[in-house]
Computed example of a mutant assay.
Amino acid sequence: MLIVLPAIFIMMLWKVSFKSKLEWLLDSLVTVVLIVWLFQAGNWSWIGYYFRFLWLILLIGAFIFSWKKVRNLPFVTKYTLNQKFSIGIYVVLLLVFGTYNAFIVKSYTVDEKGIELTFPLKNGTYYVGQGGNQVLMNYHNSHPAQKYALDILKLNTLGTRAKGLYPKELKKYKIYEDDLYSPCNGKVVNIQNDLPDLPPPKSDPENPEGNHVTLLCENHDATILLAHMQKGSIVVSKGEKVKTGQKLGNVGNSGNTSEPHLHIHAEKDGKGVPITFNDRFLVRNSLVR
């Protein structure tokens, strides 16, 4: 979808012979809202984070080239039944993709007060695969306890999360075995450390968190869960007090997970609590360097 769909719409804008400026305008608007939607909501870590900027460049080029072809046409003309049908399709698509973009705008903001944490990973470019206050950007959003959860990946120099599209070898994922640090001063309230790391696409729905550390941070009454850690890597104990930046263990692929990543969320009384890093509320496609 991140390649074929934008390619089709940009090619149509570039190649189609329009009968009026109205047809061109509707086609252009549909293409713009489609590209903007995919730019923000697509998970670009699969084919390359920086690849998404190529579509913006091609969109600008197609817009300029097509305008040169239609600038002398009338704004409206007498339309055949097929042309009227096409205009109707443009209007429907504009409403659909426009609505998607409106939902995405919502995902960037929260009304609730968030918990400020220190980012728990270092030495790399980290990518938010799931995050935000809307289910189109963050599938966790439909689960009350994980409403503001983040799934974090690490990008290589090509802007992808792994060597290959979906490798089974865990070490081909850039984030696998990365050191994981405490995001706050606090106390360890629970750990799990003996579950296996599974080769994708295997998962363990019986133990959804996998190996994990649960923290109760100072000055907050919400618990922080860091999940899917590497088997045997956890170096803190239940009841231990920890400092911000203290190593907790390593990122793994245990539990109900599709591939190596860090899952982190804050929860209070069964409800998700927003978390921020340096006052940033992270959403899908956010980068932390």
Score class of each variant (00 low, 15 high):
L2N: 12
K15Q: 12
K15L: 15
S20P: 06
K21A: 01
L22D: 06
L22E: 08
E23Y: 01
W24E: 02
L25E: 10
D27R: 14
D27C: 15
S28V: 14
V30T: 14
T31D: 07
L34V: 13
W37Y: 07
L38R: 05
L38W: 06
F39S: 08
G42H: 11
Y49T: 04
F51M: 10
R52S: 02
F53H: 14
L56T: 02
I57S: 13
L59Q: 10
G61I: 07
G61E: 08
F63C: 11
F65Y: 12
K69C: 09
N72Q: 08
F75S: 00
L81I: 15
N82L: 15
N82G: 14
K84G: 11
Y90L: 04
V91I: 14
V91Y: 04
V92P: 08
V92H: 07
L94H: 03
L94V: 09
V96R: 02
F97C: 05
F97S: 05
F103Y: 15
K106I: 15
E112Q: 15
F119I: 06
P120G: 07
K122W: 00
N123K: 13
Y127I: 09
Q134C: 10
V135T: 13
Y139R: 08
Y139N: 14
H140G: 04
N141L: 00
A145Y: 00
Q146D: 12
Q146V: 00
A149V: 06
L150R: 01
L155C: 00
N156S: 09
T157Y: 12
L158N: 15
L158I: 06
P167G: 09
K168A: 11
L170E: 01
Y173V: 01
D179I: 04
N185L: 01
V189R: 07
D197E: 01
D197V: 05
L198I: 03
L198H: 03
P200D: 05
P208A: 10
P208S: 07
E209Y: 15
G210P: 09
G210M: 03
H212G: 00
V213H: 03
T214H: 11
E218W: 01
A222H: 03
A222D: 08
I224M: 01
L226Q: 09
G232I: 03
G232S: 01
V235N: 10
V235F: 08
V235Q: 11
V235C: 07
V236M: 04
G239A: 03
K241I: 14
V242W: 02
K243E: 10
G245H: 02
K247D: 00
K247W: 00
L248S: 04
G249E: 04
N250S: 12
N250M: 12
N253D: 08
S254I: 04
S254L: 06
N256T: 07
T257Q: 10
T257N: 11
S258D: 15
P260D: 03
L262S: 08
I264F: 10
E267T: 15
G270N: 05
G272R: 02
V273G: 02
F277C: 07
V283P: 08
R284H: 03
R284V: 13
L287H: 06
V288T: 06
V288S: 06
V288G: 06
